[in-house]
Amino acid sequence: MEQYLELLFKDYTLQIITVGTAVLGALCGVLGSFAVLRKQSLLGDAISHASLPGIALVFLILGVKDNNGLLLGALASGLISAVFIKGIISKTHLKSDTALGIVLSTFFGFGMLLLTYIQKLPNANQSGLEKYLFGQAATLLASDVWLMVAITTISVAIVLLFWKEFKIVLFDADYTLTLGFNVKWVDTLITSLIVVAIIMGLQTVGVVLMSAMLLAPAAAARQWTNSLATMVFLAGLFGAISGVVGTAISASANHLATGPVIVLIATGFVVFSFVFSPIRGLLFKQIKLWKNRNDLKLMKTLSFMYEIVKTHDNISHPHKIQLLNNFQGYTKKSLKKLQSEDLILLNKSNWSLTEKGYQVAKNLYSHQES
């Protein structure tokens, strides 16, 4: 890490790549949150793959590799694919996942066909289009990064400006209609921003992995909060960190492509969040399950004790622990737990209910009878 930081302050190219991947990760995290919440996780995959024919067609028209021209072609192709997806969903009885699958396979198949044709041309060695499949962050220029910063700034400004509309459409589109908002326009605006973010990341992450870059930070952030604002912020933060850490690892090791490493770091955030999130994490769910089971055992033991005690006038009358052998739910640990909560008293081989324990058990028993 020390070597990387030292190199970062000295190497201008590394600075450019680091800023570019951080900005890309932040934008993908912010906009990916809306794709995840709209249950359109495959949208990023479909649009990124659908951008390939636009890249190939622009190269065939220009005859040379022009990054700006290729990205404009990818943007046009991505927007057209989004229109096709919306059209299939609205004009047919097909569901969104089917529409996304059809558009993805059709556009990507056409793009691969064009790439095969380009490879047979005399100027094929000038294309370098295969770099758009998996990305090559090392090709980022200062002008590319400034363009990323400008697009990110505009996109975030639009999100903040239409925050209320985006939020209402996400959670209740029908209610949005009753308020007089144009739901189709808002939906189109969100989709367009997602398309722009995907196209912006093609040069860095590539067609194949771009959907993971869009969705992984948002999926990780979703595990930590129920607030949209917090989720968007966390997703942007996770995406930016993934970009910086992925670039650092790629720069510190030989022959490691930056795009795949960034995606793996983002996936690491997802795995960590799925396990350790206090809201939805698997670990905390298991802990809660164990606690509920233990609480249930305690209450069953207390109820059994109440059955014994209620026949006596003196509720504090001691009873042999051996009496509990007829009840298989108790353990020495559960008895100590009940004592620590001041529900029972233990005296060598005897136990007795406290006043508090008697009232708790009585309430449990009355609920069971009702």
Score class of each variant (00 low, 15 high):
I308P: 02
L114H: 11
P278M: 11
A266Y: 05
I151N: 10
K288H: 13
V23R: 04
M231P: 08
L228G: 08
V360A: 04
S96W: 01
F134I: 13
V145M: 05
V263R: 03
T178Y: 01
S352D: 05
L296Y: 12
C28I: 01
T191E: 05
E6V: 04
S143W: 04
V23F: 04
L113K: 02
A266N: 01
F269T: 05
A124W: 02
P278H: 14
L302T: 07
V183T: 13
F84G: 01
K65P: 00
M231W: 09
V183N: 04
V19G: 00
F84K: 04
D295C: 04
T178M: 01
D172H: 10
V275N: 06
Y132Q: 06
T301W: 01
E369V: 12
K131Y: 13
T178H: 06
G73W: 06
H319W: 07
A221M: 06
G109S: 10
A218F: 11
D97P: 07
L71P: 01
Y330K: 09
I279K: 15
I55K: 02
I168N: 03
S352Q: 12
G268Y: 09
T331L: 08
W290N: 12
Q126I: 02
F108W: 05
L346W: 10
L324F: 02
G128R: 03
Y365H: 15
S273P: 10
L282T: 15
L114C: 07
I118S: 08
L71V: 04
Q203D: 08
I102N: 08
S277G: 09
A137F: 02
A219V: 15
L140K: 07
A99C: 11
G25Q: 07
N326I: 11
T139G: 00
A253W: 14
E355G: 10
K297H: 06
L121I: 01
V169M: 11
A150R: 03
N292V: 11
K300D: 13
L264G: 02
L338Q: 04
V271E: 02
I89V: 15
S51K: 10
S143T: 14
P122A: 09
E6M: 06
D172L: 03
C28K: 02
K348G: 05
Y132L: 04
I279Q: 14
S273W: 11
S340K: 14
V103L: 07
D97N: 13
T354G: 05
V30C: 12
T152C: 14
K285F: 10
M200I: 10
K288E: 14
S155F: 09
N182I: 09
I241T: 11
L193T: 01
K86R: 15
L42G: 08
W146P: 00
S192W: 11
L24I: 15
A216Y: 10
L140E: 07
S155R: 09
G44C: 05
L24W: 01
V83S: 04
L113Y: 15
F269G: 05
R293L: 13
W351M: 11
F269P: 02
A197Y: 09
L283R: 13
L296H: 12
V149M: 12
A26Y: 11
L209F: 14
L160I: 13
A361M: 08
S192K: 00
I321L: 15
T301V: 15
A219G: 06
L345A: 12
Q136S: 15
A50W: 05
Q328T: 15
F107T: 00
A76P: 02
